[in-house]
Amino acid sequence: MKAVRLHRYNEHPVIEEVAEPKITSPHDVIVRVGGAGLCRTDLHIIEGQFREKSGVTLPYTLGHENAGWVHEVGSAVSNVAVGDTVIVHPQISCGFCRACRAGDDMHCANAGFPGMDLDGGMTDLLKTDARTIVKLDPGFAPEDIAALADAGLTAYYAIKKAVCLLYPGTKAVVIGAGGLGHIGIQCLKALTPAEIIVVDRSREALELAQTFGVDYAVLADGKQVETVKEITNGRNAEAIIDFVGEGSAVDDGIAMLQRAGSYYVIGYGGKLSIPTIDIISTEINFIGNLVGTYNDLVELMTLTAQGKIALHTTVYPLDAALEAIQALETGNIRGRAILVP
């Protein structure tokens, strides 16, 4: 079968033939991939940003946002059957460590992460574990929802953390309305009564955001901080949801955060630099967000089934993976890129 394989950091992956995965454990599940999302994390993997963190041995197959149909199951699998439509939680968890017992499975002490430190889903068949599988209504098309497995899940997880701050009359600033941001906006609309201010340098991204009913769309033209201050009457926002996390976005976000507000970091690549006295004197909070739990993914898929979350996607055949990667690198993808074997 074909797979998108990374052989060397700072070089584009290659499409090559690999052996099909085999069932080796009673709880193994092999999924026939119907859609594999491509995101900026894949670019960061290619750049080597996860070289030390993942400990992966190259070459390996990319792809951590996956949906499809159950192809084969191990002898102890009872929650799904061959042919079921599924979305795959990105982290394989053990179920026995303290984090798993607490339902905090993305912090599993014995985790595996296909597409990060194991072979991922940019291929025909993905090997995973029964604990990762969320069974879906067969009406779902995997290529339409694959990116919810990470991009959607991460956005939902961050917004859930912010819910307690965002009562009626509050304002939330979303930095970046692209692949993750456009999902985060919909999660904010579904879960909170806050007024939503979206900041992006792309007019097309802002136009997409407006279709989801945001209250203010602000072009990042160098005056975005002043514009947000005007919108908030100088008070700034209770929550900053940063889907960029690099460049000037971080400094802008801090400047738009009000006293006792919280800054949710989802995008990454930059550095947070702020005097500790500024954190203490204003009691602002910085909160990291790593994927989300299995139950979060179930909840997100429920919202999707209710029509409250929709992905804007651009579909590429697996053979065009390099074209999709180049389009993502140059910022020419609106919403999410999905590879279909």
Rank of each mutant, 00 (worst) to 15 (best):
N10K: 10
I15V: 14
I15G: 01
I23Q: 02
S25T: 04
S25K: 12
H27P: 02
V29L: 07
V29D: 00
V33H: 03
G34Y: 07
D42H: 05
D42G: 02
G48K: 06
Q49D: 13
K53R: 12
K53D: 06
K53H: 10
L58P: 03
L58S: 02
Y60V: 00
T61M: 02
E65L: 07
N66R: 00
A67D: 04
E72T: 08
V73I: 14
S75W: 06
V77I: 12
S78K: 15
N79C: 09
V80M: 14
G83K: 13
T85V: 15
I87S: 08
I87M: 08
V88A: 13
P90I: 07
P90R: 08
Q91W: 12
I92T: 14
S93L: 03
C94V: 08
F96C: 11
F96T: 12
C100F: 01
D104S: 14
H107S: 14
G115M: 09
M116I: 15
M116N: 10
G120P: 06
T123V: 07
T123S: 11
L125N: 03
K127T: 05
T128K: 07
A130M: 10
R131Q: 12
T132H: 09
L136S: 09
D137Q: 03
D137P: 04
A147P: 07
A147V: 08
L148R: 01
A149L: 03
D150M: 06
T154K: 03
A155T: 06
A158Y: 00
I159G: 05
K160Y: 05
K161M: 06
A162I: 08
Y167K: 11
P168N: 05
T170C: 09
T170W: 05
T170D: 09
T170R: 13
A172M: 12
G176D: 07
A177M: 04
A177L: 01
I183F: 11
K189E: 00
L191R: 04
E195G: 00
V198F: 03
R201Q: 08
Q210M: 08
T211W: 01
D215W: 06
V218E: 08
G222L: 09
V225W: 11
V228W: 09
I231H: 06
N233V: 05
N236W: 04
D242R: 10
F243H: 11
F243A: 11
F243W: 01
D252E: 11
I254W: 07
I254N: 01
L257I: 13
L257A: 10
R259K: 14
A260F: 12
G261A: 11
Y263I: 15
Y264H: 15
Y264Q: 13
V265A: 15
I266M: 13
G267V: 03
Y268V: 13
K271S: 15
L272K: 03
P275D: 14
S281C: 10
F286V: 15
I287V: 15
I287W: 12
N289E: 13
Y294A: 03
V298F: 05
Q306Y: 00
G307A: 00
I309R: 00
A310G: 00
T314R: 06
V315I: 06
P317Y: 02
A320H: 07
I325S: 00
A327F: 00
G335Q: 06
A337W: 02
A337T: 04
I338S: 05
I338P: 01
V340D: 06
